[in-house]
Design a binder for these strands. Structure first.
Lengths: 93, 93
DNA sequence: ACGTTCCACTTGCATTTTGCAAGTATCTCT
DNA sequence: AGAGATACTTGCAAAATGCAAGTGGAACGT
């Protein structure tokens, strides 16, 4: 399996990279991600679980019964790839 | 829609980026892509059609009844993003 | 202490996408 | 005309995705 295939195995699923992008600047809560992305709630829950298992993000317990999702070092390492893809998407066809 | 979402709208489907990666160095034929990637043939046909419509690649008629698929300028512009993602995939967890 | 509210999910089911295997079309060469 | 090679298409099963409603637990007000 190529390096690219290995990467896509982790962040290639629908919504995965968009979720990571949201957290690049600061940790986000579940509701924030849902509102900002418009992602179906069951999919969001699934992605967060997968990305946590993959070591891309961690759950931070917050006060009340809320938690924040924050990128790990490995998650933050996606910044360059996300920016590169974003630049490409911004260019006109 | 964010720039990243726009990009994923085009190359976010399964196999799409892997197909583009294969053509970064040189044009490829249908059978080559199928063998090298192990992608289901109907999916490959669908992706090639989508990527052609999106202006990422073009069909080049070859002799016999074969054709080659080659990246356009827009397709080649994906190189940086693909390399960035590949690098990330190559790093250990 | 009890009900209400908020937040983070889960669950059930329809729709869409993906995958597998087999079949079709066209060209070339003999 | 027949055979082989290449590029697909087609039919159907499996898996992923999406939608809407429901669940569970902690905090807050009374």
């Amino acid at each position: 399996m190529s390096d690219l295939a290995a990467a896509l195995d982790i962040v290639g699923a629908r919504w995965a990279l968009l979720v990571v992008e949201q957290m690049l600047d600061e940790p986000k809560r579940y509701g924030d991600l849902q509102r900002d992305l418009g992602v179906p709630t069951n999919i969001l829950a699934t992605r967060l679980r997968e990305l946590e298992v993959a070591g891309v993000l961690v759950r931070l317990p917050l006060r009340h019964n809320t938690r924040a999702y924050a990128l790990t070092e490995r998650g933050r390492a996606l910044r360059e790839a996300i920016i590169a893809l974003g630049n490409w998407g911004a260019e006109e066809a």
